[in-house]
Amino acid sequence: EYSEEELKTHISKGTLGKFTVPMLKEACRAYGLKSGLKKQELLEALTKHFQD
């Protein structure tokens, strides 16, 4: 599980793409985000969540 700060850091540095799909799905579930099946959809959901 990833902390909010850790995820925000990866988003701001542009390194969230280094996460694997299972890692991204886990992060989306942890924050109650609707997650797609594609890596890009997962990245967009997390990025949008933490930028709002």
Rank of each mutant, 00 (worst) to 15 (best):
K34T: 11
E4I: 13
S12A: 14
Y31C: 13
E4W: 05
G17R: 11
Q40A: 12
G17I: 08
Q40D: 15
T20V: 00
H10N: 05
E5W: 08
M23G: 05
T20P: 11
G14R: 06
E41F: 03
K25A: 11
S12D: 13
P22H: 14
K8T: 09
K34P: 14
E26F: 05
S3F: 15
G32L: 04
H10R: 09
E5M: 09
E4V: 10
L16Q: 02
E26W: 05
L37N: 07
K25D: 13
K18M: 14
C28Q: 02
G36V: 03
I11M: 07
K34M: 08
R29Q: 15
G17F: 07
F50S: 04
T47R: 08
L16G: 04
T9G: 12
K8V: 12
K8L: 14
S35W: 03
E44R: 08
E5T: 12
H10P: 01
K39V: 03
F50M: 07
E44A: 10
E41N: 08
A27C: 03
Q51P: 03
D52C: 05
L16N: 02
C28P: 01
K13W: 00
L37V: 15
E4S: 08
E41G: 06
K48A: 13
K8D: 03
G14L: 05
L16E: 07
D52V: 06
C28L: 07
E41H: 04
E5F: 10
E4N: 05
S35T: 15
Q40G: 11
L24G: 00
M23C: 06
T47Y: 12
R29T: 06
G32E: 05
L46W: 05
G14V: 00
Y31D: 02
E41K: 04
K25Q: 14
Y2R: 03
E44K: 05
T20F: 00
E5S: 12
S3R: 07
G17M: 10
I11H: 02
L24N: 01
E1P: 01
K38T: 11
L7T: 09
G14C: 03
F19W: 13
L43T: 08
H49W: 05
Y31A: 09
S3N: 11
V21L: 10
L37E: 15
E26I: 11
T47M: 10
K18T: 15
E1V: 09
S12I: 08
T15N: 14
L43N: 05
H10S: 09
A27Q: 03
T20N: 08
G17E: 15
K8N: 05
C28F: 07
K38L: 11
H49P: 04
Q40F: 05
E4M: 09
R29I: 11
L16V: 06
S35M: 06
K34I: 08
K8F: 09
G32N: 13
I11L: 10
L37T: 14
V21C: 05
S35Y: 06
G17N: 14
M23H: 03
H10Y: 10
Q51G: 13
A45W: 02
L37W: 12
S3M: 11
R29L: 09
S35P: 13
L37C: 11
Y2Q: 04
S35Q: 07
A27G: 00
C28V: 10
E6K: 15
L46H: 00
K13I: 07
S3I: 07
K39E: 02
A27W: 09
K38D: 13
T15C: 02
I11K: 01
H49F: 15
L37R: 13
M23S: 08
G36C: 04
G17A: 12
